[in-house]
Amino acid sequence: MSDQVELLLQVNGAARRVEAWPLERLLDVLRHGLGLKGTKEGCGEGECGSCVVIMDGKLVVSCLVPALEADGSSITTIEGLGGEAGLDSMQQAFVDEGAAQCGFCTPGMIMAANALCQGGRTMDHASIREGLAGNLCRCTGYMKILAAVRKAGGARP
């Protein structure tokens, strides 16, 4: 038995305080504690990638990160990218290429794709497939996702 702890996080550029159980999942801190519902739970075991976020510059599966470890860290979620009025280039490419179908894996897929494309590397499909190996999509067969990542990847600074 433990007590809840107060965490201080930088979330999408803003300082946020939130109470959580030390071993609570970062995923739950984001969704329940902070109301950021864009990060999704698909499997709860680090397999599907729907819950990936950027923590201190690294892509992580938020269902496997304990809340206490996230204390003091800087987190970017899908809400930290562009809103509907100002999509970032990856989000726009997902729209243009038809890469989102049901939309449930999409936030994680976009976070992972953005992490993959940092530095503006242009990638072939094989390296994108490898880079997105931890993100499962049941709708698309990945073809249009690969096309979107390729399109946006080259356009990145």
Binding site: R31, K37, G38, T39, K40, E41, T77, I78, E79, L81, G82, G83, E84, L87, Q91, F94, V95, D96, G98, A100, G103, F104, T106, P107, I110
Partner: peptide, 22 residues
């Protein structure tokens, strides 16, 4: 025509509301 999906903007921004988001 390949009209873009009506639901795409909400989905790529994480704003689309699934039941567990309610």
């Amino acid at each position: 025509e390949s009209a873009p999906r009506k639901d795409a903007p909400a989905k790529v921004t994480g704003r689309a509301q699934f039941v567990d988001d309610l």
